[in-house]
Design a protein around this nucleic acid. Structure first.
Lengths: 336, 336
DNA sequence: TCACTGAACTAGTACGTTCTAGTATCGCTA
DNA sequence: TAGCGATACTAGAACGTACTAGTTCAGTGA
């Protein structure tokens, strides 16, 4: 009833377990005839190598631990790419989910017990101290967030530039009254606020720069947009913290009878699968998930190999879709 | 540079590894003084038990494998509950993601290599033959889908009843022209179509039963709703295959200037986090994720213990929120 | 003929735990 | 003071694999 082991295959084939190991790993050291016979017997027996034993024996586990948020579409995108990027280096991914009822320390402890060579944190909520403490225990790589913590590798998009792209695009379309619904205390939120203010000031629109507390969810975006609509002169364009937040902004606008982009333009952030959906077609700042994942794996492996932690900053790209357009004439409040 | 092991802790404490093991597991057999000392030393050394070695040694791995889709919010909900349900039984969860670039067989093979005691498949796309073959290799539990495959445990909501609840609700509000945007070839789609037809017929509305090909995504819902709006007499209510699909339906309606629920009522399915978001407040058929997860873990453990596979069918519940209302008078096309 | 080579294969150990089957040590009773 | 039971602890063998350091054997060149 118990699953067959290498010893069972070896016995059935009349050879040593070492030779079975050689065959299963596909390394040189076995004749083609033996190879074929062992594979056949293994198949008949339903033998599958025991990954735990394999990992235990190998000095290097060849596993990268990834802590991700279950309900963030962008994290889903990243995880998918991480699988591919890790596989390209012969590594496995161990997933540990973060959710409302499962906090980040719990998720990370689970990864630690798996003896990952490095842990990759997606948009972590850890404090810098927490990150530094973790980095002292295991090579740690932070994705899509910055930190001042020592010893932590970082791979992230340039949030200042990213928001700047969004502002440039909107200003180029003629918008002046632009609001930013931020990510509240979310990682990256501070940078994006800064980038927003800087870009608005650069365009001489500092007095129109309007920052509202938002969050990472549709609900947060909806709440902020509701507040904006209650104002005497709502903005003609909104830049949201992420695509989920932007979705909440759009939904609220549309439900209140405003047209997007006719009455109000909306820009998201991340270019998650949410943004590219055919019926959404959201203009958004793309954090190239593939590039982020590849850079993350590359540096995680470097850290695991004893390399120094560095910060890789990727330049985001604006993806113009259908939620942005020139403002309606009457929404201007300043002389041209 | 290498992570400390039990032997390191034992040496530092001047005791045997066996005693360290006793302390780390919290089982009886060590004095309180020793216990405190070992814990302190382990902490100082940054020792974390090696889960692989632990699992290898134990006859039972106490791991449940879960294959889930990265981009299905409802799967996220389920995974979160599965963690809790498994932990309640002292089990760990090994996650393996399914995504466009990572197919289900790949995900399941990864779980098999982890020596899970049982595999839990969320809304699997496997054929019955594929499921039967898998069940022959490892105790297999299917969640949120039915199958005729032998040896496979099933935990699912009653899709026939669920759709029936949605139809009853809409008919109770006065709707007659009701469309169903189905899940195309998705698991459960056939049952829901059947349930829809049966319920409509039961209400004497068989001639109004209108089934469109949809899918599991917002895009699919949007496509179907666009098609419906192109008809001379669009329905006054739509029941979508799941909440994501329903979101696409709602978005399309709102973008086309229709009010939800003023002009058209929409019902989703799953009661995922999408439906309960404050700005969405979607009327939906709840597949209680917690109950589903608890039943799944319970039966998965039973299967792993040699129990016979059974089918657990949970009765869904209608959650009435804000996307359903009585139809507008002029949308009636039949005498009262 | 003989040392040598390379291919094919194997014995045995190590990985870091848990578990079984113990052995000391102590306090207590008879 | 011997005997007993509990408590605290330990030696050593697993678990299923990978790896090191071989061994065997047929073939080769001089």
């Amino acid at each position: 009833m118990t699953r067959p082991t290498m010893a069972d295959v070896a016995k059935a084939a009349g050879i040593s377990t070492a030779l079975v190991s050689i065959v299963m790993r596909g390394v040189p050291g076995a004749s083609d005839a033996t190879r074929a016979r062992v594979m056949r017997i293994a198949d008949e027996l339903g033998y599958v190598p025991d990954e735990r034993a394999r990992k235990l024996r190998q000095s290097r586990s060849r596993v990268l631990g990834v802590a991700f948020e279950l309900q963030q579409p962008f994290h889903g995108d990243l995880v998918e790419r991480l699988y591919a990027a890790a596989a390209a280096h012969g590594y496995d991914i161990a997933l540990s989910a973060v959710a409302p009822t499962r906090d980040e320390p719990t998720a990370v402890e689970a990864l630690l017990r798996e003896r990952c060579e490095a842990v990759v944190l997606l948009g972590s909520r850890f404090t810098d101290d927490g990150l530094a403490a973790l980095a002292a225990r295991v090579p740690t790589l932070l994705v899509a967030r910055r930190t001042g913590a020592a010893g932590v590798g970082v791979v992230r998009g340039d949030d200042l530039v990213g928001i700047g792209l969004a502002v440039d695009h909107l200003v180029g379309l003629g918008h002046e009254r632009i609001a930013h619904v931020d990510g509240a205390d979310a990682p990256g939120s501070a940078d994006r606020r800064l980038g927003f203010d800087a870009a608005m000031t650069r365009h001489g629109l500092g007095r129109h720069a309007d920052v509202l507390t938002g969050g990472l969810t549709e609900a947060a975006g909806a709440r902020a947009m509701t507040a904006l609509l209650a104002r005497p002169r709502p903005p003609s364009a909104v830049i949201a913290f992420n695509d989920r937040c932007a979705t909440g902004v759009v939904d609220t606008l549309v439900h209140r009878g405003r047209r997007v982009p006719g009455d109000v333009s909306v820009v998201g952030y991340d270019d998650s699968r949410l943004a590219e959906a055919p019926h959404v077609q959201m203009t958004t700042v793309s954090q190239d998930a593939t590039a982020l994942a590849e850079a993350a794996v590359k540096q995680a492996l470097s850290l695991a190999g004893g390399g120094k932690p560095t910060e890789t900053v990727l330049t985001p790209r604006l993806v113009v879709r259908s939620t942005t357009a020139p403002p309606r004439g009457e929404s201007y409040d300043s002389p041209r």
